[in-house]
Design a protein around this nucleic acid. Structure first.
Lengths: 193, 193
DNA sequence: CCGCAATTACACAGGTCTGTGTAATCTATG
DNA sequence: CATAGATTACACAGACCTGTGTAATTGCGG
């Protein structure tokens, strides 16, 4: 039964490289030959695992759809931590924006599966925000969660153009103001944590 | 001297079409042949006006660098109006995000002139926000202007993925909260308008 | 050790793209 | 009308892309 394992390992190697190149240079800018050459396999082998470039694109995006690991930190700390992580991501290594937004912007076909995956990702993050806000006892958790998501996406877009991690800190400060405003004007939070 | 006028008119026709196609389908996705065919001129003529596709891209982006027309409406109204206009833009016609962010994301060369133009555009808008905030007597006008710009960019990015103009309204509401929070905590605004 | 599946090298079809070369034609200006 | 510049049609080079066909080779499981 090691055959399936070997096959899965090869697929993962392909996806790792595709991720690095697709994200770093753009999906349209990277050819299938380039990915195969980077790994050191033949193009034929790559097509044996992914029957078309579109399949590879979908797999590349799906692989990035990992739900956030549950944490026992206080909700507000988790929310602020998301912006801190973004700031570190912008500062460290290759930052080229949100891979999902880039994919949607780069693939002109409106019915592409990338749109569905991108929407799923954004909604997943928004719901994560919403859950934390509800634990803070905030009544307007749903609209506020969308606003936090907008701040995240805005910091990412601004960081692409400005190349400055400070935009994440600015977004974080804005998020803090919004959450606090919703806390005082809404019902009292449950002081459980 | 009508020769120069005719030449300028042709350049404008080319740029109009390039704008529509570049923005609507992506810079990399649209070939020079397609633009020429759409206008009904030969590819040779297009290359007579723009010696390379890169020149055309730069001209396309530069043409969108128009400063906002001065307005005598109250500053807060102008700020909120920017989000209202964004909401209408998302809802009406072809919306494909911010052309400058898209260009930077699509062109992998980090030294491309598009980066400079995109930065100039974002900074132009931020300074416009800053001036209005200063007229409101807000002490933290500069950092707040960056936060408003982040909200704009975030609403744009979220709208691409969600296809829902409501994100602009959410961003607008968040902007209102941020401006009001900065107004009450800072020095009193000058009640001139 | 046999056989099967994966992998490889290599060529190629068919399409796209940017940019140029050329010779003919059109058009407005002097 | 004459001339110079703009435009046209058309071919083509050179590069890149996705995807396939084929035959030889490798390596692992039974």
């Amino acid at each position: 039964m090691a055959r399936a394992d070997v096959r899965a390992a090869m697929q993962e190697r392909i996806l790792e490289t595709a991720d690095r190149l697709f994200y770093g240079q753009g999906i349209r800018a990277v050819g299938v030959d380039t990915i195969a050459a980077e790994i050191g396999i033949s193009k034929r082998t790559l097509y044996n695992h992914f029957p078309s470039k579109d399949d590879l694109i979908v797999a590349y995006l799906s692989r990035r759809l990992k739900p956030a690991p549950p944490s026992d930190r206080p909700p507000l700390e988790q929310i602020m931590g998301a912006f801190d992580r973004l700031e570190r991501t912008i500062a460290t290594g290759v930052f080229r924006g949100c891979p999902f937004v880039n994919a949607v912007a780069e693939l002109k076909e409106p019915a592409h599966a990338a749109n569905r995956i991108a929407l799923a990702f954004k909604e997943q993050r928004r719901v994560w925000f919403q859950g934390l806000l509800e634990r803070l006892g905030i009544a307007t958790a749903e609209p506020l969660s969308l606003q936090l998501q907008i701040l995240m996406d805005g910091a990412i877009a601004a960081a692409i153009v400005r190349g400055d991690p400070a935009v994440a800190a600015a977004a974080r400060a804005a998020a803090k103001v919004l959450v606090e405003a919703a806390s005082v004007s809404g019902p009292r939070p449950i002081p459980s944590d």
